[in-house]
Amino acid sequence: MTIAPAGTPSVTDRPQARPEIEPDPKGTFEKVLMGVFIAVPLLAVVAAVPFAWGWGLGWSDLAIMFVMYGVSGLGVTVGYHRHFTHGSFKAKRPLRIALAIAGGLSIEMSVIDWVAVHRRHHKYSDQENDPHSPWRFGNDWRALTKGLIWAHMGWLFDSRRTSPSKFCPDLMADKDMRRISRFFPGLVAISLLLPAALGGLLTMSWWGALTGFFWGALVRVSLLHHVTWSINSICHAMGEEEFEARDKSRNVWWLAIPSFGESWHNLHHADPTCARHGVLPGQLDSSARTIWLFEKLGWAWDVRWPNPERLAAKRIS
Rank of each mutant, 00 (worst) to 15 (best):
L297I: 10
A275V: 11
L43R: 01
K166F: 15
S125Y: 09
S205W: 14
P308A: 14
D61A: 15
C235I: 11
K296S: 10
E22D: 02
G216I: 15
G103Q: 05
T203E: 15
L62G: 12
R161N: 00
E295R: 07
P131H: 02
A275T: 08
F260I: 13
W150V: 06
H81Y: 04
A313N: 12
L224C: 08
A151D: 04
P169M: 11
V252Q: 10
I64M: 06
A91W: 00
V46E: 05
G58A: 14
A4R: 03
M65E: 14
G282F: 03
N266L: 13
S222V: 04
K296D: 07
Y69E: 10
E295T: 07
S249R: 00
L284E: 08
S222P: 00
D176G: 08
W150G: 03
I21K: 03
E295A: 10
L297M: 12
L224Q: 06
L297N: 05
F157Q: 02
G239D: 05
A6M: 10
E295W: 07
R220Q: 02
L33F: 15
A300C: 08
K314C: 10
F29S: 11
A48M: 11
Y124I: 08
S286C: 14
G212D: 09
K92A: 14
G282D: 06
C235T: 10
I180P: 13
W150S: 02
P23C: 01
R82G: 03
F137R: 02
S159A: 04
P195N: 03
R18D: 01
A270L: 12
W207S: 14
I316Y: 01
I107P: 06
I316V: 07
S125D: 07
I97Y: 01
G138I: 13
Q127F: 10
V227G: 07
R310T: 15
T28N: 08
W141V: 15
H277A: 09
K146G: 15
K166W: 13
E22C: 07
W207K: 11
L74T: 03
V45T: 00
W135A: 06
A39I: 10
T12H: 02
I291E: 00
T290A: 10
I64P: 05
V76K: 00
L218P: 07
W135G: 04
W253M: 12
E262W: 09
F243H: 04
E309H: 10
S88L: 15
A189G: 11
R160H: 08
F37C: 15
I190E: 05
L187S: 05
D170K: 09
E108N: 09
D130C: 06
W53H: 00
